[in-house]
Design a protein around this nucleic acid. Structure first.
Lengths: 206, 206
DNA sequence: CTAGATTTGTGAAATCTTTCACAATACCCG
DNA sequence: CGGGTATTGTGAAAGATTTCACAAATCTAG
């Protein structure tokens, strides 16, 4: 498959969200113009984004909402469930575990680990927090697709190295550091400090 | 000021993080090459990013760590403190309030609001959760620079409209929707579903 | 069946971002 | 002080992304 820009993938994900809205409202078809308006982009952008993956619309009519939802899910790989391990049972982890959107979209948290003995054994949303020492054994027994790293910054790289060595190919990182991983591993980092600083930059330079 | 790409601003923010590390380690100067290696980019990129704002280095020598830290803080607008109001006292809000990086970088949470009467009055990290009905009065009395929206999706747009009408020019949005705001208001949305779906896309298309 | 109204899909153009490559400068050492 | 080495700053080239603009397709109404 031709290399697709990250910005395109993010927009597809947005379009999917809007289409699900439209579907709930009972709309049957939608034009690129309407999708664009909802997402703050242009109709040409919408059509170009979709065109990388095929032609899903009907000229003069627009796109079938139901079909486009189906296609986007397929393109984004949402037709299956993903097994997720969370490492770090702190505040953010706690918030994430209870985030319904996770499971709704097929991301199933199957294990939570922490290094802090006082946290081990606690029940979190039906899952028992386990000692991080068991991470290796558990992931060997039951591999996961995605690791969510919610440890303090100084532990994050070691955790990343460990899960990568256990075959994990995708990491969602909330630790405020830049993880170094092999080329075939995907990392998405959510870095709050970064977001704040782009806001601060925008407020300063206007 | 010439329009600077968002990607550039994000990298500057990263560089700052690395420089602070280097400073702690006692390094006095750093080359663009070393900064680049730490951030997974190229030395040319580092130099180009910095060149939009001036020339801070010495040929043959590199950059003074202390000076570059100072300059980047200035560029990013981190020389002051920002007053922040948080709207939504749920799980994510709770995690954010305790996030030290917030205050460390000069972002001071001065008020927390929630619509849920059972949450109003609770003490959160030294702040009392207030009824969202008081939002307007409070922001008129004591304006804030940034609003952090951590409400459910269906309340987020109304909250955004309200804070914008009260003069807020920057919003950090954790609700999984696309906020619509006037051009002079900056919004950064942290959308977990989006991140998960780009991971899922990457896992699917390899 | 034809004319008119829509709206897609897509090359080409425009714009934006990154990378290249090298002159200019600064330091170091003998 | 002069030659050697390191490293910046920056135009120009290359590459990536977005926007334009229009032919092709489809529908509707008469």
């Amino acid at each position: 498959m031709r290399k697709i820009a990250e910005s395109t993938v993010r927009r597809l994900s947005l379009y999917l969200r809007f289409l699900e809205e439209f579907e709930e409202q009972g709309m049957e078809t939608v034009s690129s113009e309407a999708l664009a308006a909802r997402g703050g982009t242009t109709s040409a952008q919408v059509r170009k984004d979709l065109s990388f993956f095929g032609s899903f619309g009907k000229r003069g009519l627009g796109y079938s909402v139901a079909e486009l939802v189906r296609r986007l899910r397929e393109i984004l790989g949402l037709g299956r469930t993903y097994r997720v391990a969370m490492i770090g049972a702190g505040k953010i982890g706690s918030a994430l575990v209870q985030y319904r959107g996770f499971r709704q979209r097929g991301f199933e948290i199957v294990a939570i680990f922490d290094a802090d003995a006082t946290k081990v054994g606690r029940n979190w949303n039906g899952l028992s927090v386990r000692d991080v020492k068991e991470l290796e054994g558990e992931l060997r027994r039951q591999p996961v697709d995605i690791a969510v790293i919610v440890t303090p910054a100084d532990a994050a790289q070691a955790v990343a190295d460990k899960v990568v060595s256990l075959g994990v190919k995708a990491i969602l990182n909330f630790a405020p550091i830049q993880l170094i991983v092999p080329d075939d591993v995907v990392v998405k980092t959510v870095n709050l400090a970064l977001e704040l600083e782009t806001l601060s930059y925008a407020l300063t330079n206007r």
